[in-house]
């Protein structure tokens, strides 16, 4: 299948912040999968490609590692940038913080579509949209 976005893409910014934990892998707090940091399609992987769970380590700037929370962040929704890139919105289970991260090339497609379909699978939105026409 041909790519849907053949346009030239801006290269991602280099990380200029110091990360607290050196290493080339992290373990997912949700499913205990060992995940390598290098990912196809993104330079800023912060979630597990299998269950999409992340961890609350960044405070305000992505990569600053200044959050004291360290809670589990569950994926709650999917949004789209203007250029068509998908972002996952994570919601911290212990402090309620939110963060957004671009999806990687090896993320679980079924899990992504399940999150994207969650508001549509409820009758409230469908009925409400039809009634407001």
């Amino acid at each position: 299948m041909p790519r849907r976005k053949p346009a030239e893409r801006r290269p991602q910014r280099r990380k200029d912040v110091r990360h607290g934990e050196p290493g080339d892998a992290f373990r997912c707090v949700g499913c205990r999968l060992d995940v390598p940091v290098t990912a196809p399609g993104t330079a800023h992987r912060n979630h597990c490609p299998n269950c999409l769970t992340s961890r609350h380590v960044d405070h305000r700037v992505p990569g600053d590692r200044r959050a004291a929370c360290r809670g589990r962040m569950a994926p709650v929704s999917v949004t789209v940038r203007d250029d068509g890139e998908w972002l996952i919105i994570h919601h911290c289970q212990s402090c309620g913080g939110l963060s957004a991260n671009r999806i990687a090339g090896d993320d679980n497609a079924l899990a992504l579509v399940r999150i994207a379909m969650r508001p549509l699978s409820d009758d409230r939105l469908r009925v409400g949209a039809l009634l407001s026409l």
Partner: peptide, 24 residues
């Protein structure tokens, strides 16, 4: 809240999928 805008936001990811949705 405006249900049409809510519906548009919910449908928008599925309108531009990064992978083919036909396999699902």
């Amino acid at each position: 809240d405006n249900q049409l805008i809510l519906m548009r936001m919910a449908v928008r990811p599925l309108a531009e999928p990064p992978f083919p949705l036909e396999t699902f």
